[in-house]
Design a protein around this nucleic acid. Structure first.
Lengths: 108, 108
DNA sequence: CGGTTACGTATCCATCTGGTTACATCTGTA
DNA sequence: TACAGATGTAACCAGATGGATACGTAACCG
């Protein structure tokens, strides 16, 4: 959780996550999207890897990175404690319904 | 969004947010929960304030801080682009249903 | 084998961060 | 007014962060 939030707090890393959300990519492709040099990208990827947010597979001389969204569920779970607070346009009953729906869906 | 994630990336600040999720609190009360001195807490509160995550009201000589959850919706929105990826136990059709449910609920 | 490509790692360095102590400000009280 | 309590700010400092360049290594190619 901590590692995931820390990883996402950096704009460059978030850009990389968003790019990988569209398609898998090599280090070079990711570096081309960012204003920083490839060694920096490699280090960002290490942070993302250690947070479990990406994984790499070797493809010839390249490494193709893929997004792993599972750790994001931790943040989603944390946020769930506060959702009712920004969904105040719904009355308390509806909020409860929405919450139980979410719960059911999650444990489905 | 950036400010919100940055604010939440710090464990001390997240503890403060979680405490304020239970009840409003003064700076002294928050400081009592943390292993850091009050000036540090004040500065964390400034970060949270600038991210829109808390607001203070004057109550005599004390300042009572309250959680504002609205900025968390930005993160929720960002996460929504990736939810389907960690909910893969559902087949694609069900994912679509869940997504439209969420959408309806949000714009209700 | 020698060279090139695609990465990762090591090192360096300027900046940011988050803690501390000292001090300023404001409110309530004697 | 003088004093105490609660909080914010300033200044300082050690450690983390994120960038760059230089270098090491493994995979492909001639």
């Amino acid at each position: 959780m901590d590692a995931v939030l820390h990883a996402l707090a950096d704009p460059s890393r978030r850009t990389m996550v968003e790019a990988l959300g569209q398609a898998d990519a090599t280090v070079g492709e990711l570096a081309a999207l960012l204003p920083i040099a490839r060694p920096g990208v490699s280090r960002h990827l290490r942070v993302l890897r250690e947070a479990g947010l990406v994984e790499a597979r070797q493809a010839g001389q390249q490494r193709v990175y893929r997004l792993r969204a599972e750790p994001l569920a931790e943040i989603d779970e944390w946020l769930s404690h506060y959702r009712a607070r920004w969904e105040q346009r719904m009355d308390a009953l509806h909020t409860e319904i929405a919450r139980s729906k979410r719960q059911r869906r999650k444990t489905q």
